[in-house]
Design a protein around this nucleic acid. Structure first.
Lengths: 350, 350
DNA sequence: TTGAAAGCGTTACCAC
DNA sequence: GTGGTAACGCTTTCAA
């Protein structure tokens, strides 16, 4: 009987020594062990030390699942990204991890890859209690959660806002940034400025396009402007966009790209066709891709404080959960405009 | 009393409707509901349908934690990456997710960022039962797990092997790839070939350096070869390496870089100094970075089947867990050598 | 085919 | 301060 039980115990997969074992070893009640291990001041310092000692020696590791079940919190938050392979998200995630580390809250990452099924599966993690909160980098609240309004405080959107009201948001002012970049091109004397945009359903790319248009209109140049929207914003889309632009009668003398990757692809094609960058055609990108400085020509771009967005987003989430309040106002962090070689020098037009 | 209880229930955070509620609604026992929901054929098709219906209507969602606690499996595997911001890991993760999706196994990702504490915290997820298995992309078995040999079947290393014996491995033959790349440069008539290596403690970079040396020695060119090892393998390290190379009396006529990023940095500096790439100096990178094709000049490189590595790694892990066997032999997938402009054309020396 | 009951390992509540 | 006990929501025997 005893042998069988021992065998059964050994055969079980995970951490074998439980709080009950510790209790037996220490000659106290399991609840005391629980309290001691969680550092409750209701337990003598002495007993606490003794129990900690025993726990350590016996290699005790708390069972996450049991703890989660009983205490109704997972100590984990879930980050939903559209595509983990996009270079920009990992930096944000790093920031999130950084902010949550000190609270001993783990971060789990799930990418939707555009699949709605996957989105729902991930969203359930919040509902089932596998995660205490949700950080959305995909600009979309999973339908599953749209109705469960009492979850709104457990959700924060970073970079891309979601349409639903009441969801906290942390990002940058994309419209303003695009306006500033366009104005910079204008200040260099460029007049025929095109815009290669990203997917226009995306609020982020819509804002960048808006910013561009604003600057052009204010300069009285709305006629020459040219906005393109692609279903993607990667290098291949940049190549396509450039080919399309090159097929027209009159070329632009500058292009504001909605992402650095779009710019990479566009510049590649332009150079292949013998166009001099930046002399004939200036470029500005968006996002400060790691390669943008090493690229030839080094790419002028807007640097988004991704890491800091992650930190602030995580902090906002914690604040909402702990204090059970809404952070209604969108929080916008400053971006940085990085001037590099791809725009040429001042005085182009003179 | 009843009111208080109801209030308590409402106040509880997560999914409110439980298996017991469904049971009550359906007029059956909770165990029947459990069986029905898991599709057990021991339940009448009729009852099963009815229960499914009720569950759906009431918005029932199974509590992950309770299920995990009882059934002793998490239906989740953990992927440990050194740095989620490195471009290469996400592709592998995508492959892993892809392979596990059909089994309804979730993927959680944790990055160690070189911190041992973080590594241990992540490793515990396996021990506490929060994860059923571990996929290591960091080339290192957390110390925590080194002694727990009975966990070895729940661990698979991808890309970078771990030193510990008995851990399954999936990767490519880096040594062979480096040899092939070097031979290609030799075939173009290049003779003074340098190597910019990554951190030499890393088996992956050590293998690439070895492959380079082998090719050089076999060509009788060991004297002119030049291996450098940096603590990193990013763009900044590439710049540093190139500056160091440029400070010497005699320049190489080709450089094999241990990563595309190293190549990006090195090429940038070389071009800034007026060196013609590839005419004077040819380059080969490693990993087929997304930007490598758009880079100027387009970078010759070795393409690693990252996604497929992820798929195979995940499948291997499942096989080990389900069949409880070891997959002892390292599994090597074929890489692809992509010739682009950065090496120039055949006949350089003639 | 279904019901009853016993746990999984932990924490929370109520006594003492 | 500590012990006892119930409960978290589910799965899984064992009976019926």
């Amino acid at each position: 009987m005893t042998a069988e039980k021992a065998k059964g115990k050994a055969a079980r997969s995970n951490s074998n020594v439980t709080i009950v074992d510790i209790a037996r070893l220490a000659g106290v009640n399991p609840s005391t062990v629980s309290r001691a291990l969680s550092g409750s001041s209701a337990v003598t310092l002495q007993t606490r030390a003794r129990i900690a000692q025993i726990a350590k020696e016996s290699g005790y590791i708390a069972n996450h699942n049991a703890r989660m079940l009983r205490s109704r919190k997972a100590n984990q938050i879930l980050v939903i990204v559209p595509n983990i392979a996009a270079f920009s998200h990992p930096d944000v995630i790093l920031g999130i991890e950084e902010a949550l580390e000190e609270y001993n809250i783990g971060v789990i990452v799930g990418s939707t890859k555009g699949s709605e099924a996957r989105e729902i599966a991930l969203a359930r993690q919040l509902v089932t209690g596998a995660a205490d909160g949700l950080i959305l980098l995909n600009g979309r609240l999973p339908d599953e959660l749209g109705e469960l309004t009492h979850y709104s405080r457990r959700i924060v959107a970073i970079s891309r806002p979601v349409a639903n009201p009441g969801i906290a948001f942390v990002g940058i002012d994309n419209e303003q940034a695009a306006t500033e970049a366009t104005r910079y091109l204008l200040s260099l004397g460029r007049k025929r400025i095109a815009h290669i945009g990203g997917p226009e359903q995306s609020p982020i790319f819509a804002a960048r396009a808006r910013g561009y248009r604003t600057a052009m209109e204010q300069a009285g140049l709305e006629d020459i402007s040219d906005v393109q929207h692609f279903s993607s914003f990667d290098i291949a889309a940049g190549r396509d966009a450039m080919r399309s632009i090159l097929s027209r009668k009159q070329l632009p003398d500058a292009i504001l790209c909605a992402s650095d990757e779009l710019a990479f692809g566009a510049i590649q094609v332009a150079r292949e066709r013998g166009i001099k960058v930046p002399e004939q055609l200036a470029f500005i990108g968006f996002d400060n891709h790691p390669v943008s400085e090493a690229f030839s020509p080094a790419l002028t771009t807007i640097s988004v404080p991704r890491r800091r967005l992650g930190v602030l987003g995580a902090q906002t989430l914690l604040r909402q959960i702990d204090a059970d309040v809404d952070v209604a106002e969108p929080q916008l962090l400053p971006y940085e405009f990085l001037v590099r070689a791809s725009c040429g020098r001042n005085g182009f037009a003179s």
